[in-house]
Simulated assay, not measured.
Amino acid sequence: MNDKRVDAHAEADSDADVEEIARLLPAPARRHLPREQHLHHKEQLMQRIDHDQVASRPRPTRRLPRPALLVPVTALALGGLLTAGVVVATGDDAPATTATRRHDAHGTRPATVLLDQISVAAGKGDALQVRDDQFAYTREKGTGADLTSGKAVVGPLRETETWSAQRPGPLRKLGITRTDGETLPINAELGDTDGTPAGLSRPTYRWLASLPTDPERLLTYLYAKTPKFEGQERDQEVFECIGALVGGVMPPGTAAALYRAAAMIPGVSEAPAAHDAIGRHGVGISRDDTTFGTRTEWVFDKRDLTYLGARSYLIKDTRYGKAGTLMSSTAVLAHAVVDKAGQEPATTRRS
């Protein structure tokens, strides 16, 4: 009888925790999932709930989870994704040496050669003069898997437009997003009561231009500043951080440095059969997340090596589906700089 009472109390506490987290989170925008992040955050939440439900001893006080990255162009959405607590990386998370990152036993990796070519192409883009009172505009199509049923159920392909404020901040309203005719605000990152400043959580053009353009220095910065998830390998977190930054309005020097920095991350490889959400085939760069059993691919145009989009899918059988199950897919259609949120650009460009 006592055991049943303890289990009942543990389950009630767990339900109360989840309800409190849901109450604190902002209302989610109705748009496609941000690439591979949905699977990771959902898995971590489920593990915490499962643990709490079987616990038979008093639980220590836990910090409420918070989103790791609220990048405007890939804002967390579809049900309000819940994540584990975020901490800043320490010196122990510094990347490996250049020699071990860039080369294997057979010399330069094919992915390094391809990323160097992509870097050169990105560096030839035009630098823009973006004012602090303007907005970065992105139009893309995408879809993502809903995991609430316990299985990956891929939703319909939807087109989303995003207007991201360029003021350095801190800002409480980061811009707006429009999907299927419905326009919603992008709020400050959860926990930023005074607003979210420009940075990894809100990469303005001016902030991106301030980053080191030396790949070594840039990669060291990303390993130190990229938010950390409990249980996920550091190399994958930094790879995903770079993937969240590329594909929009960006200084060419920064884009070039990001791709060369990505080439230094262990485990990065080519993906010859890569394609985006609307079926555009191209050359790809991928990395396997061994913790969660997913593969993330970035897709680039075969002709000019511009960024087309990304997708993520299972590479092993999991509770959500069999290997090959799609988790998310995006296709960047256009980006530009405009004067007002909600304004359609007169001309657009691809990455």
Rank of each mutant, 00 (worst) to 15 (best):
V268W: 10
Y137D: 02
G342C: 11
C241Q: 04
L45T: 14
D93W: 02
A8V: 10
S328N: 13
A127Y: 10
P95T: 02
R35E: 14
E270P: 04
Q232A: 10
M327Q: 14
G155N: 04
G155C: 00
K173E: 15
V54C: 15
S164V: 05
R287D: 03
L211N: 03
G144I: 00
E19A: 15
A10Q: 15
R109W: 02
R66P: 01
T226G: 05
P251F: 03
L258I: 00
R260K: 01
D104Y: 00
L24A: 12
G144C: 00
P65A: 06
V154C: 01
E344R: 13
P110A: 09
P110C: 01
A29M: 15
H281K: 13
G175Q: 12
D288M: 11
T204N: 06
R350M: 10
L245C: 06
E233I: 14
L157M: 01
L305I: 06
A29T: 15
P252L: 14
P95G: 04
L147R: 15
G279D: 12
K322A: 12
P252S: 14
R234S: 05
R66N: 09
D194P: 07
Y205M: 07
K141R: 08
V337K: 10
D301R: 10
A188C: 01
Y137E: 06
P67M: 00
L258M: 06
P65C: 01
E237G: 13
T204I: 01
A209P: 14
I242S: 09
H106A: 10
A256P: 09
T347P: 09
H32G: 04
D289V: 12
R303F: 13
Q129R: 01
E216F: 02
T254Q: 09
G267P: 02
I242C: 05
D339C: 01
H32D: 08
L200T: 04
G293Y: 09
L64E: 09
T318A: 03
L76G: 06
K225Y: 00
I242H: 05
D13Y: 08
A55D: 12
R102L: 03
Y259D: 12
E240R: 14
R35Y: 13
P95H: 05
I49V: 15
T90M: 01
H32C: 07
Q117N: 05
A331M: 02
T90Q: 02
F292P: 02
D317Q: 03
L70S: 12
R35I: 15
Q47M: 10
H275V: 02
A27E: 15
